[in-house]
Simulated scan of single mutants.
Amino acid sequence: MKLSKSFNSAFRKFAYFLSSGNHHNLKGIDYLSLYGEEPSAIEQTYVIFINVLELDDAGTVLNAEYAEKRATDYLREYCDGNFNVEPPYEDWEVILH
């Protein structure tokens, strides 16, 4: 089975805005240098996005904005020691498969 157009669209949008430095949840956070210097932080951001993303039986994404928020909150906390993710991540959100 192929990934749905809905999933493809949600992932493409997230990847574009994250890698362009224009993600609305990360305004004022200098994170673009992490792409070359600390790629594991970027990897974990994508992992959280994918783990949190929910699809219905037809493959339609149900919670893209929430998945983006959980993922970008990780990156914000990584870059800004004064920011705390709420609620804290559950194991299933951050596990690398």
Rank of each mutant, 00 (worst) to 15 (best):
E68A: 01
R76G: 02
E68V: 00
L62F: 03
W92Y: 02
D91N: 14
V85C: 04
T60C: 13
V85A: 05
E65V: 03
P88E: 15
D73W: 07
D91R: 12
A67R: 03
Y74Q: 03
Y78Q: 06
T72Q: 06
Y66Q: 02
K69T: 06
Y78K: 00
E90R: 13
A64M: 09
V61L: 08
C79P: 11
E86C: 11
R76I: 04
V85N: 01
E90P: 11
Y66K: 01
V61E: 09
V85E: 01
P88W: 12
Y66I: 01
D91P: 15
P88D: 15
Y89M: 11
E68Q: 09
E65P: 09
A64H: 14
A64D: 13
R76D: 03
N63Q: 08
A67F: 03
V85D: 02
A71W: 02
G59L: 14
E93I: 14
A67E: 03
W92A: 09
L75C: 01
C79N: 05
D91L: 13
E68H: 11
P87S: 10
K69N: 09
T60I: 10
E65Y: 12
N63M: 01
E65F: 09
L75R: 05
A67L: 03
W92F: 06
T72K: 04
E90L: 15
E86L: 12
D80V: 01
Y89G: 08
N82Q: 08
D80S: 05
A67T: 05
E93L: 15
Y78M: 02
V85K: 06
T72N: 03
E86W: 11
L62K: 15
Y66P: 01
Y66A: 04
Y74T: 08
Y78R: 03
E93S: 12
E65W: 10
E77H: 14
E68K: 00
G59Q: 14
N63L: 02
D80M: 07
Y74H: 09
L62P: 10
E65N: 11
N84W: 10
Y66W: 09
L75D: 07
Y66C: 04
N63K: 09
P87V: 10
F83R: 04
G81D: 14
A64Y: 13
R76C: 07
N84E: 10
D73I: 05
T72A: 05
G81I: 13
A71T: 04
V85H: 00
A67Y: 03
E68M: 01
F83K: 02
G59D: 15
E90D: 12
Y89S: 03
Y74G: 02
Y74D: 07
D80K: 01
L62W: 08
F83P: 00
N63A: 07
K69S: 04
N63W: 10
Y89Q: 07
R70Y: 00
E93K: 12
T60R: 15
P87E: 08
E90C: 12
D73R: 05
C79F: 14
E90T: 13
Y66N: 02
R76W: 15
Y78N: 02
E90N: 11
C79A: 08
E93M: 15
E77D: 12
P88C: 10
V85M: 00
N84Q: 11
Y78G: 00
E77P: 14
E77V: 10
N63P: 05
